[in-house]
Computed example of a mutant assay.
Amino acid sequence: MAVLTPNERSELVMLLARIDCFQATDERVELVRAAGLLRAMPHIDLTGPNPRSIADDLITLANASGLPAIGQLLRAVVTRLQPDESTARRWLHTMMEQHHIALPAPELVLDAPPDEWEPEHFVGDPSLRPVAFLLRGAKASEHVALVDGPDGRGTGFLVGSSLLLTNQHVITSATAAAQAVYRFNYQKTEDDRDAPVQDYAMQRGGLFYAYKDDDYDYAFIELAGQPGQRWGFFPLEDGPPPRKGERVCIIQHPSGNPKQIAMLNNFVDDVTDTTLLYTTPTTNGTSGSPVLNEAWQVVALHHSGGKPYHDELGRLKVRNRGTRIGALLELIPPEVQQLLNQ
């Protein structure tokens, strides 16, 4: 499946044809080998005097192979750019961010002479975590459910024994809430089998409270059967928001599929009074998911992805968006408060 748009593909071909590491045949071969694509493209001709034609063939094959091939190629190109090719580097970084492709780890520079080097150093982002981090994440994932409503599928999560939070555009009305199914444990087991699920419905005559505008998109739904007693729930608290550059995970049902977690390339890009912007991967069906810090606390309610915006320097960026929990709590009426965290 093609990854790049026609404009992105055309610009990438032009960029590749201009950079230094693509001018000679041996450099092209080394680039494709470093990207791990030489065996996947055994018939590609990397010789000849026309870099643009060769770049066109290479991008065509990589684009047809899908996102992993494009990601491997872009990372290999970035690591081979010369210091004076900063414009190309910025363009590639933007492209990789938009397609949720992890940037290569930066080169570690040591000031000490070799005889004073220590035997081990972190290279790039220090991402070691205790095993308990995964165990706590698995426990937190139990609070998350597939929301299968009349208007489509999304994600929701428990914030009380009987109170579920999702997006208003996932469940648009009390009527839709009453028709929806809220499915817990919809996921794969350790041996890749279907886990046993448990379905819940809205409490007859139960609470439905929702609101939507540019910054807010939420729906609180009271469920029958006290599912939080079985699956647990996230306490909603107005804690400090994550800072730019910190990691946030999203437990979700992407495209209505079994539960998954986004833990890679998951950085906060900006924080406002109401909104969290992040690179954590999402797709259709992620709407209504919890955005979680590294303590597995809910810091935002995910509601949209891929919307372009201009940052403080006027640069156009594409980021995923969620409403900060602190901002959301300020709008909750007493009838919701009675069910929250209970």
Rank of each mutant, 00 (worst) to 15 (best):
Met1Trp: 06
Val3Arg: 00
Pro6Cys: 10
Glu11Gly: 03
Asp20His: 15
Asp20Ser: 15
Ala34Tyr: 04
Ala34Glu: 06
Gly36Tyr: 05
Leu38Tyr: 09
Leu38Thr: 00
Ala40Phe: 09
His43Met: 08
Ile44Gly: 04
Thr47Cys: 09
Gly48Tyr: 10
Arg52Gly: 05
Arg52Val: 02
Asp57His: 10
Asn63Val: 02
Leu67Phe: 06
Gln72Lys: 10
Leu73Gln: 00
Arg75Trp: 02
Val77Asp: 01
Thr79Leu: 07
Thr79Ile: 10
Arg80Phe: 09
Leu81Met: 03
Pro83Tyr: 10
Trp91Tyr: 15
Thr94Ala: 14
Met96Glu: 01
Glu97Tyr: 12
Glu97Gln: 14
His100Tyr: 15
Ala102Met: 13
Ala105Tyr: 05
Pro106Asp: 09
Pro113His: 09
Pro113Asn: 10
Glu118Ala: 13
Phe122Ile: 05
Gly124Ala: 07
Gly124Gln: 07
Asp125Gly: 03
Pro126Arg: 03
Pro126Gly: 08
Ala132Lys: 11
Phe133Pro: 00
Arg136Phe: 12
Lys139Glu: 14
Ala140Lys: 01
Ser141Tyr: 07
Val144Cys: 04
Pro150Thr: 15
Gly154Met: 06
Phe157Gln: 02
Leu158Trp: 01
Leu158Tyr: 03
Ser162Ile: 00
Leu164Ser: 02
Thr166Met: 02
His169Lys: 04
Val170Gly: 00
Thr172Ile: 10
Thr172Trp: 14
Ala178Trp: 03
Ala180Phe: 01
Arg183Met: 07
Phe184Ile: 00
Gln187Met: 12
Lys188His: 11
Lys188Ser: 11
Thr189Tyr: 13
Asp199Tyr: 14
Tyr200Ile: 02
Met202His: 04
Met202Gly: 03
Arg204Trp: 10
Gly205Asp: 13
Gly205Thr: 02
Leu207Cys: 13
Asp213Met: 10
Ala219Asp: 08
Gln229Phe: 04
Arg230Val: 13
Gly232Val: 01
Leu236Cys: 12
Asp238Leu: 04
Pro254Glu: 06
Gln260Thr: 09
Ile261Ser: 11
Asn266Asp: 15
Val268Pro: 00
Asp269Gly: 15
Tyr278Leu: 01
Thr279Asp: 13
Thr280Lys: 02
Pro281Ser: 14
Gly285Asp: 06
Thr286Ala: 14
Thr286Val: 08
Thr286Cys: 14
Ser289His: 13
Ser289Lys: 07
Pro290Asn: 09
Leu292Lys: 02
Ala295Val: 05
Ala295Thr: 12
Val298Leu: 12
Leu301Ala: 05
Gly305Cys: 08
Gly306Trp: 08
His310Lys: 11
Asp311Ala: 07
Leu313Tyr: 10
Gly314Leu: 10
Lys317Met: 11
Val318Ala: 11
Arg319Gly: 08
Arg324Leu: 15
Gly326Phe: 08
Ala327Val: 08
Leu329Ser: 11
Glu330Ala: 14
Glu335Ala: 06
Glu335Asn: 07
